[in-house]
Simulated assay, not measured.
Amino acid sequence: MLVDAHGPAHADDVWRRFTQPDTWPTWAHLIQGVDATDDVLAPGTTGTVHGPAGVPVSFTVTEVDPELRSWSWTIGGRFAGAAMEHFVLPAPGGGSRAVLRVPGRSSALLQGYRLPATRALRRLVAPPGGTGSVEDVQAFDFAFAPSYAAAGRAFGITPATATVEVGPQWLYIAYGPWRLVTPVDNVASVEVTGGFAWIKTAGPPHLSLEDRGISFTTNGDRALCLTFHEPVPSIDPTATITHPGATVSVADPEGLAEALGLEL
């Protein structure tokens, strides 16, 4: 499961609110209060979140990376052992994206949390402005062929809902309701490809039965194929399937390769 929200708040401000437990009730309204061993999250921070009606949920922070603006935890209570990953990404032109990813078995347990989590992330990124400088994030549009556009529309895939963004640390792909998020350093290589059959690539993302790669294709002519050092989830809502590569039919494959710092 992956949910995300985009808003005008600067990524530094979102990161601060995301990692200071005493601010959580101000943007996550299901949280009534938090007891934590640290004022700012760090690996090994433990505590208790008090949810609706004061129901307590214990947590342990397992990883914090301020450079990537990412942190992870495991929670207890009725969802004992469930893991969650949290990321903050700068957005093109300023603003930010807040991302929550729940992998594997944990995702099946927490599907009911999708809607309240989305609402909370929207509030997290909503306050405008901030003190940091605008970070360089390049956005790449998909090139839609008419026949692919018609097939994708039924799945919520349009030029307004499909983009690839490359920031200083993160690669972000939106394709209708599907998302792929991974550090830029996880992209191992790139290659321009094409000649796709419409029946195999039009519509929603397609999973290769041969190598489990994922295709985000809006035309059959040209795309950029990315390979990853570590496979990345995207296609299924439980994040159980991971992909060693992704194909994206952006209008400027060469520009995307350059933004990723990789040679063709």
Rank of each mutant, 00 (worst) to 15 (best):
G51P: 01
T242A: 12
V40I: 12
G176T: 03
R16F: 10
A239Q: 12
G261P: 09
G81F: 10
L121I: 03
P244H: 03
R97C: 05
T240S: 14
V187T: 12
A108Y: 08
A9S: 14
F140E: 00
G7H: 11
D35W: 07
S96N: 01
V3Q: 11
G255C: 07
A223S: 13
G104C: 11
F142M: 10
V164P: 01
R222P: 10
L260M: 14
I199F: 11
T46R: 15
D12S: 10
R212N: 15
P128S: 05
R114K: 12
W73P: 02
F144K: 08
S189W: 09
T118K: 15
M1Y: 03
G220R: 03
T161A: 08
F18N: 08
T240G: 12
A257R: 04
A117S: 15
L109W: 15
E85L: 14
P25D: 02
A80T: 13
A9F: 02
T45M: 05
T163G: 04
E191N: 08
R17C: 10
E230H: 03
H243A: 04
E67V: 12
V102W: 07
V49H: 09
A36H: 03
W27L: 02
A259K: 09
A174H: 12
V190P: 01
I241G: 02
S133I: 03
Q169V: 10
G213M: 14
A143H: 13
T242W: 06
S70H: 13
R153K: 15
G51Q: 07
P92N: 07
V137E: 05
T193K: 06
A257H: 08
Y113R: 05
F155V: 05
V99W: 08
D39F: 02
W27H: 04
T227G: 11
D236V: 05
T242H: 10
G167F: 11
L2P: 00
A202R: 05
P237Y: 09
P253R: 04
D38L: 03
F155R: 04
A223T: 02
S70K: 09
W178P: 07
A251I: 05
V134S: 04
W198C: 02
E263L: 12
S147Q: 12
V34E: 07
P183F: 15
G95A: 01
G156F: 02
D141I: 06
E135G: 05
R17I: 04
G203Q: 06
D38N: 12
P92F: 01
G54C: 04
H29F: 15
G213A: 13
A239K: 01
R101L: 14
T182N: 11
L209W: 09
E67G: 09
A154M: 08
L121S: 06
D221H: 14
V40H: 00
P43D: 13
E67P: 00
S70C: 00
M1L: 06
D185C: 07
R16D: 08
G76R: 02
S58A: 15
P253T: 04
M84L: 13
A151Y: 09
T60K: 13
H29N: 07
P244C: 06
L110I: 09
M1K: 02
P177H: 00
A143D: 15
D65L: 03
S107Y: 02
F228M: 11
R97H: 13
W198M: 08
D141K: 10
L89I: 13
N219W: 07
